[in-house]
Amino acid sequence: MKYVTPSERGAALLSVLLMVAVLAVIAATTLDRLTLSSKLSSNGNALAQARMFTYAAEAIAAARIEDLVARDAAQTTLAGDWLGKQQSIPIPVGSATAMVRDTGNCFNLNSLVTETDGRYLASATGMTQMTSLMVSLGTDENVARAVAAAAADWADSDMMPVANGVEDEGYRSEATPYLAANRPFAHPSELRAVKGVNNAIYAKLQPWICALPELVLSRLNVNTLLPEQAPLLAMLFPPGSMNLAIARSHLAKRPSSGYGSLIRFWAAPELAALEPSSQVQGQVKLTSNYFLLTTQVTFGELTLAGQSMIVASPAPARVIWRSWGEDE
């Protein structure tokens, strides 16, 4: 029998302890990965379920919007207290809320261009109205004109900047170079990429802008336009022409059943004095077609916030885009 020295026994013990330590690390890593995998699977299931509840909310909202529009084809009013009112939606597990607003009452970023023979051309009227809106919100007029021009260049097809505008060369010089889109806006957040639009300007504009899927001047439903949305009415006129206090007062005096007639709306002395052009008068309407549904679904530890744009006409009402954001 071979004699084992104390040093050999120590080395053997050390080897065994090292192996145990390695196995412990492997076991801990495996357990950690299993836990992570289980958590990811659970979150994935929760997210999928939350999205299903969002789809259900969209279906409910679309049906109610159809009913709202069908109730009176001549005008869409605030009757029924539907605008901006948060509604709870009963779901088996967790909680869900939904809110609908008239998203047609906004500055349509795609009014900055018109389409001719498949080409997008900058619209002088669209730029002036964006400038007027920004001035009404407290932005310096020179800054506002530059932002409106850059936004029009972002959406038009050509490479020639309009006055005060910016095309590709202006973006190639950025720390991270990029190019202008040269197509209509797909989402209002795209405005953040436009030259001259900093965080402060975007934050100020965000509640007032939209990107509707049509290249037309903004159309406002004065039956649903709220007094606090007076800057949208002011944007129809040259910068600084309309007093916001007067605009708010006029909207606050709206009949509870709606105007019923655009003649009745424009007959007000404070508006008649501004001598609105036929083009401006054509931008005012009594009906709504675009609605924004905002949802929030809490399922387990997950909260899913979503937005869906619903178009009412032609029937049936349907979702044309949606976006989600989640907070765990």
Rank of each mutant, 00 (worst) to 15 (best):
Met127Ile: 01
Thr128Tyr: 07
Gln129Ser: 06
Met130Ile: 02
Met130Trp: 05
Thr131Arg: 03
Thr131Leu: 01
Ser132Asn: 10
Ser132Lys: 10
Leu133Cys: 00
Leu133Gly: 00
Met134Cys: 00
Met134Ser: 01
Met134Phe: 00
Val135Gln: 06
Val135Phe: 09
Ser136Arg: 05
Ser136Asn: 09
Ser136Ala: 15
Leu137Ser: 03
Gly138Val: 00
Gly138Asn: 00
Thr139Leu: 09
Thr139Asn: 03
Asp140Phe: 07
Asp140Val: 04
Asp140Lys: 11
Glu141Lys: 13
Glu141Leu: 05
Asn142Asp: 15
Val143Asn: 13
Val143Phe: 08
Val143Gly: 05
Ala144Thr: 07
Ala144Lys: 09
Arg145Val: 02
Val147Ala: 05
Val147Asp: 03
Ala148Cys: 07
Ala148Phe: 06
Ala149Thr: 02
Ala150His: 07
Ala150Trp: 04
Ala150Leu: 08
Ala151Pro: 01
Ala151Tyr: 03
Asp153Pro: 01
Asp153Lys: 03
Ala155His: 11
Ala155Trp: 12
Ala155Leu: 12
Ser157Ala: 13
Ser157Glu: 05
Asp158Met: 10
Asp158Val: 11
Asp158Leu: 11
Met159Lys: 15
Met160Gln: 15
Pro161Ile: 00
Pro161Arg: 02
Pro161Met: 01
Pro161Trp: 01
Val162Ile: 13
Val162Asn: 12
Ala163His: 10
Ala163Phe: 11
Ala163Met: 12
Ala163Cys: 04
Asn164Asp: 13
Asn164Ser: 13
Asn164Val: 02
Val166Arg: 10
Val166Trp: 04
Glu167Met: 09
Glu167Asn: 10
Glu167Gly: 07
Glu169Ala: 15
Gly170Gln: 05
Gly170Thr: 03
Gly170Ala: 05
Tyr171Asp: 12
Tyr171Glu: 11
Tyr171Phe: 13
Tyr171Ala: 11
Arg172Cys: 08
Arg172His: 13
Ser173Pro: 04
Glu174Gly: 09
Glu174Trp: 13
Ala175Ile: 12
Ala175Met: 12
Ala175Phe: 11
Thr176Ile: 15
Thr176Ala: 15
Pro177Leu: 10
Pro177Phe: 08
Tyr178Cys: 10
Tyr178Ile: 10
Tyr178Pro: 09
Leu179Glu: 07
Leu179Ala: 08
Ala180Phe: 09
Ala180Gly: 10
Ala180Val: 14
Ala180Lys: 12
Ala181Ile: 08
Ala181Lys: 14
Ala181Asn: 09
Asn182Trp: 12
Asn182Met: 12
Arg183Gln: 14
Arg183Pro: 04
Pro184Phe: 12
Phe185Arg: 01
Ala186Pro: 00
Ala186Met: 08
His187Phe: 14
His187Met: 13
His187Gly: 06
Pro188Asp: 00
Pro188Cys: 00
Pro188Ala: 08
Pro188Gln: 03
Ser189Asp: 15
Leu191Lys: 04
Leu191Gln: 02
Arg192Val: 07
Ala193Met: 14
Ala193Tyr: 11
Ala193Leu: 15
Ala193Cys: 07
Val194Lys: 07
Val194Arg: 08
Lys195His: 12
Lys195Met: 07
Lys195Asn: 08
Lys195Ser: 10
Val197Met: 06
Val197Gln: 06
Asn198Asp: 14
Asn199Cys: 01
Asn199Gln: 13
Asn199Pro: 02
Ala200Gly: 09
Ala200Leu: 13
Ala200Glu: 15
Ala200Tyr: 08
Ile201Val: 14
Tyr202Arg: 05
Tyr202Ser: 04
